[in-house]
Amino acid sequence: MGSARTPTARRSQRLRVVFPDGVATARRLVAAGIPERTVYNRCRDGGPWRRLLPGVVLLSNGEPSLDQLVRAALLFGGPLTLLTGVEACRRHGLRRGPARSPVPRGRPTISILVPDSRQLRSTGFVEVSRTGRMPPPHVRDGVPLAPIVRACADAVRGLESAAEMTELMSDAVQRGLCTVAALAGELAEGSRRLTATPAEVLRDVADGVRSTAERDAKRLWARSGLPEPWWNAPVHAPDGRLLGKADCWLDDVAMAWEIESSEWHLSPADHDYTVDRAARFTSAGVVYLASKPKKILRSGPEVLEVLRAAYAHAASRPRPAVHAVDPRLR
Rank of each mutant, 00 (worst) to 15 (best):
315 A>W: 08
234 P>Q: 09
176 G>P: 02
83 L>V: 04
159 L>R: 10
147 P>C: 05
96 R>T: 03
151 A>F: 06
236 H>L: 14
50 R>T: 14
4 A>R: 14
133 R>N: 10
34 I>D: 05
31 A>L: 12
160 E>P: 01
316 S>V: 02
179 T>Y: 05
7 P>K: 11
137 P>Q: 10
161 S>C: 02
303 V>K: 06
78 G>I: 06
191 S>M: 07
65 S>R: 13
218 K>D: 08
24 A>C: 04
28 R>D: 15
123 T>D: 08
62 G>D: 14
236 H>K: 11
144 P>K: 09
323 H>Q: 12
131 T>P: 03
143 V>R: 04
78 G>Y: 09
92 H>V: 06
205 V>C: 00
317 R>H: 09
122 S>W: 02
287 V>F: 04
10 R>Y: 08
199 A>E: 04
25 T>V: 02
115 P>G: 11
133 R>G: 01
226 L>S: 04
214 E>H: 06
296 I>C: 07
322 V>E: 01
233 A>V: 05
129 S>H: 13
22 G>I: 08
274 T>A: 15
250 L>M: 15
113 L>C: 03
38 T>N: 15
191 S>D: 11
138 H>A: 14
328 R>D: 00
218 K>A: 15
166 T>D: 11
106 G>M: 13
238 P>R: 09
253 V>M: 11
137 P>Y: 10
137 P>F: 09
126 V>S: 09
45 D>E: 13
58 L>Y: 07
189 E>R: 15
320 P>D: 11
261 S>G: 15
221 W>F: 12
56 V>E: 10
274 T>K: 13
117 S>V: 13
267 S>N: 07
161 S>E: 07
39 V>F: 08
90 R>C: 05
161 S>M: 01
163 A>R: 13
73 A>N: 00
74 L>R: 03
321 A>E: 13
74 L>G: 07
140 R>C: 07
242 L>A: 12
130 R>C: 11
175 R>K: 15
17 V>D: 11
236 H>A: 11
70 V>W: 09
87 E>R: 10
251 D>Q: 12
15 L>R: 14
156 V>R: 01
209 V>M: 07
141 D>H: 13
308 R>W: 02
304 L>W: 04
80 L>C: 08
178 C>M: 00
215 R>P: 06
149 V>D: 01
122 S>L: 00
207 D>N: 13
275 V>S: 05
93 G>S: 03
314 A>I: 07
112 I>E: 08
160 E>Y: 12
239 D>L: 07
268 P>K: 04
201 V>E: 01
79 P>N: 08
147 P>I: 01
207 D>R: 14
209 V>G: 07
155 A>M: 03
157 R>W: 07
308 R>S: 01
160 E>K: 12
205 V>G: 00
309 A>T: 12
261 S>Q: 01
127 E>F: 10
27 R>Y: 01
319 R>L: 03
126 V>D: 09
81 T>R: 07
305 E>I: 00
170 S>R: 01
301 P>W: 05
30 V>H: 12
285 G>V: 04
111 S>A: 15
1 M>W: 12
18 V>T: 14
141 D>T: 06
203 R>D: 15
77 G>Y: 05
304 L>K: 06
227 P>T: 08
147 P>E: 06
294 K>V: 08
14 R>P: 00
131 T>Q: 03
241 R>S: 15
178 C>I: 00
190 G>C: 09
186 E>C: 00
278 A>Y: 05
198 P>E: 00
